[in-house]
């Protein structure tokens, strides 16, 4: 195990020892490109994250976010273009608002709002992508597993 991977694991050990699951929606133009760049650079990343490609973060609806949590994810995040640089002009702004809305919904039923987050980055900024993934992984690992009825 390289030191980077050890870093990943040590920082994210959960209280109950069970690994968390995180669903991530990446826009095709920026975040997914940054993810590919990170992969090509063989950066070590937490295995908890499952990426889903969307054309634009504007495609992600509150249903996608909540359904991911309801169907087994402990956290969900959306990564898109930098503000003002959406390839479709406004998709990331819509996504930001929807995430705020989803977080408010969670809060109203007593679930930690930080289980849903948004990150923005340029296609070239794989370090920012990696930082976002690790940050999300740490946050979710520090929370208990999400209980479902």
């Amino acid at each position: 195990m390289t030191s980077a991977a050890a870093e990943n694991t040590r920082a994210t050990e959960t209280e109950d020892g069970a690994e968390r699951k995180i669903v991530a929606f990446f826009c095709r133009e920026c975040a997914y490109a940054a993810a590919d760049a990170a992969g090509n650079a063989r950066v070590s990343l937490p295995t908890t994250i499952r990426s889903v490609l969307v054309p634009c973060t504007g495609r992600v609806s509150p249903l996608h976010l909540l359904k991911a949590l309801a169907d087994g994810a402990d956290g969900v995040y959306v990564a898109g273009c930098l503000e003002g640089q959406c390839h479709y002009r406004e998709g990331n702004l819509h996504a930001l608002d929807r995430i705020e809305f989803a977080r408010a919904l969670l809060e109203s039923v007593g679930v930690e709002p930080e289980r849903v987050q948004m990150f923005t980055m340029s296609a070239a900024d794989s370090p920012k992508f990696v930082a976002a993934a690790r940050k999300m992984h740490e946050t979710i690992s520090s929370l208990p597993q999400l209980e479902r009825r």
């Binding site: 980077a4 690994e19 990170a38 992969g39 090509n40 063989r42 070590s44």
Partner: peptide, 15 residues
């Protein structure tokens, strides 16, 4: 590849 083998080389079981 970018979503698994490249980024989880250190943890093959989980990968």
């Amino acid at each position: 590849r970018e979503g698994c083998s490249f980024i989880h080389r250190d943890e093959p079981a989980k990968a």
